[in-house]
Design a protein around this nucleic acid. Structure first.
Lengths: 219, 219
DNA sequence: GTTTTCATGTTATTATTTTAATATGATAAA
DNA sequence: TTTATCATATTAAAATAATAACATGAAAAC
């Protein structure tokens, strides 16, 4: 177990984790797959199957202890040393993310992971030297030096589409493991970097497609 | 065909569409499934299968004419009358979206759909009456009246998690068909509204899970 | 302590999705 | 005009994923 978690399950883990962090904040001690199913709209059998990949977390005739499940997630994300995450591109979206990620809410939630947001990068001279939400902003020129010195392994890429590929290419060979690509364009990097694409533009359009499909089915 | 497009295909349509809009902008006249596969990392058989749901778009021994495919997408999204889309919550993320969606780039791309972004809403008095990127900002009090009068059918929800549910509930019964929920919390609304959840927070975490899984498999 | 109830983890089944293989018909070359 | 080449659309097969069914063992009731 534990290794070779199916793709479909991996995609749901973040949702489960957020749920359990929320439950813990609400002082809820235990929950069973049926309740959770109602809450998030995923079949209870799917939930039990998913959790079984993380170990035998539940107890028969009882359910899942919130803390036990959270502990399992922590174990899953455990690493030798802390991993750094930086944001590249402090434009509108980037700034929103920085503020959001450095808020108390975020710290309590996502940053119960071994990954810490440590800096922002841009080419705008008026931003360099400033800080947003306690996070220092540096010039893009200092990027590779910073990455090497501070054990940065994750990048949130929020630059304009026109420069996304060249910035992404400059990240190769520096030990980066993953890129969250918010740049609204597909980037190609070497295989050792895992890219996760999120395009809000496309997400909106995907909603349109779902709705139009649904309306088709009505007739 | 055309109706009952599988879910897995629906999720890829926006990506295809963006690709073909880009190809068209670059004056590319035709492309074949193999090339496209390399470009976006989806198996060519999957691409052909997906396209077949939209009609017989390609020609054997030739490939797909870019304009023909774009036309098929337009047909898919065709409606009687124009649909309006509003943004609720003009905070950091909301403002970024407004600026982005009202840019020329966006107009050329996504707004070759029958859906138009028409207004923003917030409770911040200093914003009300202003406009961002030619989009007027109104007070949340005027929300339901505006929706009824302007045939608004889509909502981008970018409010704080604490108020997301109550705002979402206030949207019920007004003819809204879809919500793009960026509020970092699950919302429950009546079945006639389709909700598409996007949480950047969770997307980042999903990347972590993918990377950790990949590292597990190495050992 | 015994029995009943209950919800998990897992095995079996069904559905969905992806990939492979191929027939078809259009294109381009001879 | 004929033939060879090619890439689609589709049929078939394999792989994934979701759902249903159930045996197991823990919890709660008696």
């Amino acid at each position: 177990m534990l290794s070779n978690i199916p793709n479909a399950t991996l995609k749901r883990l973040a949702l489960y984790r957020r749920c359990f962090v929320e439950l813990d904040e609400m002082r809820v001690k235990r929950i069973q797959s049926g309740e959770l199913s109602q809450k998030i709209g995923i079949d209870s059998a799917t939930i039990r199957r998913d959790f079984s990949y993380l170990g035998e977390l539940g107890r028969q005739g009882y359910g899942y202890e919130v803390r036990v499940v959270l502990e399992a997630f922590n174990n899953l994300l455990k690493t030798e040393d802390a991993q750094g995450c930086i944001l590249i591109g402090v434009g509108n979206l980037g700034r929103a993310l920085l503020k959001y990620f450095s808020s108390d809410k975020f710290k309590r939630r996502v940053f119960r992971t071994p990954v810490n947001l440590v800096a922002g990068f841009d080419i705008d001279e008026s931003l360099v030297g400033q800080s947003i939400g306690q996070l220092p902003l540096y010039h893009l020129n200092d990027l590779s030096a910073y990455i090497k010195e501070n054990h940065v392994t994750y990048v949130i890429l929020a630059v304009p589409p026109t420069v996304a590929q060249s910035v992404a290419t400059s990240l190769e060979g520096l030990g980066i493991k993953g890129i969250l690509n918010l740049s609204s364009t597909v980037i190609n990097v070497s295989d050792d970097i895992l890219v996760h694409e999120v395009d809000l533009n496309m997400e909106l359009e995907t909603l349109f497609f779902y709705v139009f499909q649904r309306e088709q089915l009505k007739n």
